[in-house]
Design a protein around this nucleic acid. Sequence first.
DNA 1: ACAAAGATCCGT
DNA 2: CGGATCTTTGTA
Length: 171
Amino acid sequence: MQRLNKDFFVRDVLDVAPDLLGKVIVRKFDNGEIKKFVITETEAYCGEEDLACHASKGKTKRTETMYMEGGHIYIYLIYGMYYMLNFVTSHKDNPQAVLIRGVDNVIGPGRVGKILQIDKSFNKQSILTSDNFWIEQGEIEKLKYRTDVRVGIDYAGEYWKNRPWRFILKK
DNA sequence: ACAAAGATCCGT
DNA sequence: CGGATCTTTGTA
């Protein structure tokens, strides 16, 4: 199965986020077991002007990952409990990322992080070259999806709150 | 130094 | 609907 390359991720986040639907996350766990997870729900976070994006605060110790080139993994801990899995997109210094909200029948970014056994050590790693975590082309030819507003960003103001930047795979 | 809030989830 | 739980960030 074809592994996704750099060109896939070095594009605008609004193109990458829907294109990730149906792609397959492959995870090799510490015990050697390999499992695959089809991506079913994503959300786009779109640079410094997007008030829902962490990078709207500028470049900080946490957000500097998003300023890396597309193809890097962005992990952060939320509410002291849940590791959120994101993939950086676009060129260096354009802080965009896609949040993985659902895989297979696992809905919710916190649950995704848990089932994939993700932690902070994956932050800033490359999804293009790591040998225990990568993404493959899926088998679905023409998939259908719907859009909706993003979740948990009421603080971002009416405009950004209402962008239809959540992408959900249709069965 | 300290306080506040957060791209969430679970149980009641 | 409230609690868990701790890092990041702003303010003093």
